[in-house]
Amino acid sequence: MSAQQEAPIVAEPRVERSRPRPVASWRDHHAWSAGASLRRLMSRPVGTLLTVAVMALALALPLTFYLLLGNVQKMGQALGQNQAVSVFMQPGQTGPAVEMMATKLRERADVASVAIKSPQQGMDELARMQGFSGALNTLDSNPLPYALEVLPKPEASADDVARLVTDLRALQGVDLVQDSGTWRQRLDALLGVGNRVVLILAALLALAVLLVVGNTVRVDIASRSEEIGVLMLIGASGAFVRRPYLYAGIWYGLFSGLLAAGMALLIEMALAEPVTRLGHVYEGKLQIGMLPLWLLGAVPLAAAVLGWLGARLVSAWQLRKAA
C-alpha cells in the first residue's frame, strides 16, 4: 500500500465531494432506507409474517362485516321490490264486487297496480308448491277467498304505504291486509345500526394496527440501539436514522393490507355460493354484493399510512429517549 499510488482517495480536491445534489440524494436516501428496511424484514420472515398476519386479521374483520352488511342490504332491497300489500277478501265476496274494488283502487295516486287473484288461481299457486298438492286433493271445495295484490307506487314512502294499508283495512268486504312494509323499516333500522358498528369496529381495529406496528418498531429500535449510536457517531441525522423504521411501518401496513384484501376476496368467494342459492328462493333477484374495487385498493394504502403513523409516533419518542 504505497501512499503515492493510492493518494487520490484522500487527496482528491474536496470541492468534488461537496457538489450539491439535494433532490437526487434525497431520493437515494429514501431508496436506500426502503431497501434496507425491506431486507431487514425479509431477514426474519417468521416474525414478519406473524406481525403482518395479526394486522391483516384486524383489517379483514371490518371488511367482512362490511361485506355481510352489504349483502343483507341488497337482500332487503330485493325483497322490497315485491313490497305488494296483500288484501284478502271476506269469503263470499264475488268476482264482480272484487273487480269493482280493484278498479277504484287503481284510481288512487299512491297505487301502481292492482292484481286480482281468484280462489282458483290461489289454489293453483298452492298446488305448485311442494308438499301441498296432496293435502289440497282432500278438500271438497275451494276454501280460499278472493285476494288483491296492491302494489304501491315505487316513490311511495313508508308513511304513504302505511296510510294506504289503513285505508285498505277500512274497506267493506276486506278480511285481512298483509303489509310487508313494517319489517322493511325494521331491517333498515337494523342496517343503520350495523353500519355504525362496522365504522366503530374499523376505527378500533385501525387503532390495533397502529399499536401492533408501534410495538414492533419499538422492539426493533430497542434491539438496535447500538447501531443507532454508531450511525449518529458517523454523522447520520435523526431523520436518516429514523427513516428505515418508517419504511418498516409502511411495509408492514402495505403487506397486511394486501393480505387482508386477499382474505376478504376469499370470504367473498366463500359467500357467493350460499347467497346465490338464497337468491333462487327469491325468484333469482339476488346476487352476491361484492366489496367495491376501490375499497380493496384503499385498504392496503390506508394500512400503509397507519403503519407509517405508528412507526412515526413510536420512533419519535424512542429516538428522543436514545439521543
Binding site: 493510492e6 437526487a24 436516501h29 454523522g235 436518516f240
Partner: peptide
C-alpha cells in the same frame, strides 16, 4: 454508510468504497 449518509450517488459509492477497502 458514511457515503449513504453524505448523499453520494450509488454508482460513485461503489467506486469509493472499493478504493477505501483497497487502501486498507
Amino acid at each position: 454508510l458514511p457515503l449513504v449518509i453524505g448523499g453520494v450517488a450509488p454508482a460513485e459509492r461503489g467506486r469509493r468504497v472499493r478504493a477505501a477497502l483497497e487502501k486498507v
